[in-house]
């Protein structure tokens, strides 16, 4: 890439995310960022809110509208993704490779052993490693919780206070969990993991270099090489 490609040699690139997946991911970035920012504004420190003076009322009015729009967007992406993995060819292969297997459990144990020095070999990962799968399925777990509790809070007039308190606890708890997972895990990996710094650009162009593929997903590399599934481009 640019001036930071130290070796400056011709390299094969493989498709890691197709266009639909990149668009879904982009929509997810937009909706989750909006949701986190406008959601945590509710927990805002009083002195910050007061510093906006009379404009704070207007800001908070739009905060509510934006949060709802982004929430609806988030739900729609979830629904579309279910369609995508169920009825499209690429989606089928995506979910097939994503489903948890016994190997993931072994990989996790071996990876921890490797990291603490008890094993000399890193586990060989397929298309998605156990961390990818955990992150991916955490959305399946989190989206229904925030969506249902969010819709309940949206239609607050129809609910008894008790249910609203429960919905609020779930909404806030799951939102905090998801925000922390993305901030601590996903974003730090994408930005600051050695090898990715300053930014892992796969989510923009969808490509992964042959070197990275061999290093991070050796089993997948073997598989698509043998099956001749690779789509390549010369850089």
């Amino acid at each position: 890439m640019d001036c930071y490609d130290k070796r400056n040699i011709a390299m094969r690139y493989y498709v890691r995310m197709n266009r639909s997946e990149r668009i879904q991911h982009l929509m997810l970035i937009l909706s989750i960022t909006t949701l986190v920012l406008t959601g945590f504004m509710l927990e805002g420190e009083t002195w910050v809110i007061n510093s906006f003076g009379s404009a704070s009322k207007l800001i908070f009015f739009w905060r509510g509208i934006l949060h709802r729009i982004a929430g609806v967007g988030f739900i729609l992406i979830g629904v579309y993704h279910l369609y995508y993995v169920s009825f499209t060819k690429d989606g089928n292969s995506w979910i097939r490779d994503m489903l948890p297997k016994l190997k993931d459990f072994k990989d996790a144990m071996q990876n921890v052993a490797y990291l603490v020095g008890l094993s000399k070999e890193r586990p060989k990962f397929d298309r998605f490693n156990y961390q990818d799968k955990l992150e991916y399925f955490s959305i399946y777990f989190g989206l229904p919780i925030v969506a249902i509790s969010g819709v309940m809070l949206w239609s607050e007039y129809n609910w008894n206070q008790f249910y609203l308190d429960v919905a609020m606890a779930f909404h806030r708890g799951e939102a905090t969990l998801a925000a922390l997972a993305i901030l601590v895990w996903h974003l730090l990996t994408v930005f600051f993991k050695p090898g990715n710094y300053p930014l892992n650009t796969t989510f923009i162009h969808g490509m992964m270099s042959e070197d990275d593929l061999k290093h991070h997903h050796p089993l997948w590399y073997e598989r698509i090489k043998d099956n001749g599934e690779e789509k390549e481009s010369k850089s």
Partner: peptide, 16 residues
């Protein structure tokens, strides 16, 4: 730039 991104990131994280 990345230092800036990281500091905003960590500030928000700390606040949450």
């Amino acid at each position: 730039l990345m230092l800036f991104v990281l500091s905003i990131h960590l500030t928000f994280l700390g606040w949450v």
